[in-house]
Structures are given as structure tokens and as C-alpha cells.
Design a protein around this nucleic acid. Structure first.
Lengths: 174, 174
DNA sequence: TTCACGTTTTAACTTAGGTTAATTTCAGCC
DNA sequence: GGCTGAAATTAACCTAAGTTAAAACGTGAA
């Protein structure tokens, strides 16, 4: 069974309005979600109230808060719907148990985790090796849809700079 | 069978002098390694000759170049021994095949990948949310051994700053 | 249409970190 | 003990990005 199939069989449908939170930093969470529809923003809230964007998650992707779900700790980030959304929700533990008896499912989990690790490695590379201007131009080239669906403020906080700085970069690179 | 056991059974021992490369950016690579002894530096070489440190890998850890090994692409980074080292080497493909028939092995792969993803997520957080001084102080608190085994130049390039900047930070935070 | 409010831009000033180069420190070696 | 070369520090100057605040722009509701 593949993951999408598994979630279809075992999952509960969740509907969210734009602006609604799926979970918040500090809460406990044990679920893994599959996004059927909508766009989400994962973000860290700093003690001083500043917000930094960890990632954007669109349709046909998984969402989970790894440390919360694996380590049974408080969520390290918050997750908010930027558009009206529909997801399927399953308990991570139950899914993980099923991988114990189902080699195919286990394989799909492996694939998903490899993909996740590669994505994170990519982002690590960008922060370590590229300057803000290059990160912006790359994002613009590779996810032009995002720039349309998301405010420039959020794009800036995803790139690790302030909205003011992003506005300047856009101006300079025109 | 767990991964260490698997590698012990199927792996080939590799010895390296300090300064020797395990693989280089741009080469093809199909192996996964287990570090028995030594310390490694994974680094990106920029077109302008600048070097940025992706990670340090010490004893009792796995090493692999995910994109190279999974996507059959050129290595995205180089891997060099900072100390005389001994590793066990297995083909990634073969291991991955074995996970198809061995649930326990599959589980151990899952655990390893979850850990990897969590590590990467952690580093992403540090680049996104913390300034260089905080990143340095945190590294110093959490991996004091590293600061002893690695030159300050390499620590700086791991933190994403120049050696000059790190020296300044040390001076200021004393 | 207009108002209100959030988003984006612009400007002026500050700060962290980069760059280059000179100097000091230190470890290994003769 | 003195020499060598790498590593680390220091200094002077430069640039990217942060901060604060004001102005301009857009969009949706009344």
C-alpha cells in the first residue's frame, strides 16, 4: 500500500479556513497530514515576536512536525493555512506501527524521508553558500507560483531577510 | 538485523590518512559509509574557490552523499578526513534492496533518516533564526569536542562566516 | 466612490559581517 | 633553541542587510 492510499483508508478529513492554524508552536501533536487542497505556512515565532518562515507546503505534500511527533515534544513551529484548505489526518504512531508489518508502506516512508532530507539539504546549502539576492532569484525561477500566492513579507521571512531588504533586492535586480 | 550489524557483515574496511578524500564534489558515488574511527569534514567548493563546511562527521555515524547515491548524480560536496580514519563501506543500492526483504533493517533505515532529517531541520533553524554569535555559542556549548579537534577556520566556514568574523565574535563574547 | 487597512516602497541611519593586509601566536621540525 | 609555515588576531575600510518611520499603493467592504 502506498502512503496516499494508506491515508485515504485510515485518514480523517480536516477542513480549514484561510488564517486558521493546524497546530501551534508549543502544543503537542501526534499527526501526519496530507494536503489535498490549499497552501500552508510553517513558521517559527521568536521570543521577541519576530516571525521566520520555515517552509511553504502546497497540495499533494505531507505535513508533520517531526520532533513533536517522533520525540513526543512540543511543536517547534506553527502551521497556518494561507488559503482555504483540506487535509487528511492520520496518527503518526499508527502509521509507523503499520510500517512494521508492511514492507511496501515502509518503502514509501523511506522514499518520503529521503525526499525530505534532500529538501532540507538543499535549503541548508542555500543558506550556507548563497547570498540573499541569489536565494531570491532562484526561488523566483523555481517556484514562480509561490511568489503569486504568498505576500512579499512572507517570502522575505522565508529567505531569512526583512521585507525592506527584499524590496531593495527586487529594485536592484531589475 | 540492524545497520551496524549489516555493515559489519557486508561492508569493506577503508583506511584513510588525515587529509585524504573519501570522495570529491563532481564525482559519482554509490556508497554509504560507517565511521569506525576518525573525523570528517563535508564541504562545498564554490566556483570562486571559496570553501563552506556542510558538516563534521565523527565516529559511530553514517556518511553518504544522498543526492549522488539516490539520484545517481555527481556528488554535491566533498568529504575529507581531518584525522587518520577507518570506515566500513557498503553499496547503497544493495542496502536499499535488502530493506525490501528485511523489516528490521528497513526500520533502522527509517530511524536513521528521521534522525538525519531532524539534524538538517535543526541547522535550517539556526541559519534562519539565529545570528552568528548565537550559532557560535551554541556550537561551543553543545559540541565542545569539535572546537578542540577542528581548526577555527573550519568552524567559521561551518557557521557560515569568515575566520576573521569568528575571531571578532570570540573576542566580543569574552 | 471612498474609506480603511494591509502591503510594498523609499529614505536615512545603524550594525554585523566581508575584505585585505599586516602582525602575532603556535606547533612541528631541524 | 631557532626556523618555518599555518592558524589566529587585529586593524582599517567597505557593503549588505537591519531598523525605524514615512509615503505610496491596492483591495475589499460599506
Amino acid at each position: 500500500m502506498d502512503i496516499k492510499q494508506y491515508i485515504k483508508n485510515h485518514g480523517r478529513i480536516v477542513q480549514l479556513d484561510a488564517g486558521a492554524h493546524l497546530f501551534r508552536q508549543g502544543e503537542l501533536e501526534d499527526a501526519l497530514y496530507w494536503v489535498n487542497q490549499g497552501l500552508f505556512k510553517a513558521y517559527y515565532l521568536q521570543p521577541d515576536g519576530k516571525e521566520l518562515v520555515k517552509s511553504f507546503i502546497a497540495e499533494q505534500n505531507m505535513i508533520t512536525n517531526l520532533s513533536a511527533v517522533v520525540g513526543r515534544q512540543a511543536c517547534t513551529f506553527s502551521l497556518v493555512a494561507l488559503e482555504p484548505a483540506e487535509l487528511a489526518k492520520v496518527r503518526f504512531d499508527t502509521l509507523f506501527e503499520h510500517t512494521l508489518n508492511d514492507l511496501e508502506l515502509s518503502r514509501f516512508m523511506l522514499d518520503a524521508l529521503i525526499q525530505l532530507a534532500q529538501k532540507k539539504e538543499r535549503r541548508e546549502y542555500e543558506f550556507l553558500c548563497l547570498d540573499a539576492t541569489t536565494r531570491y532569484l532562484q526561488l523566483k525561477a523555481e517556484r514562480p507560483d509561490l511568489l503569486r500566492r504568498v505576500t512579499q513579507n512572507d517570502i522575505a521571512r522565508y529567505l531569512g531577510i526583512t521585507p525592506v531588504a527584499l524590496s531593495r533586492i527586487k529594485h536592484a535586480s531589475r
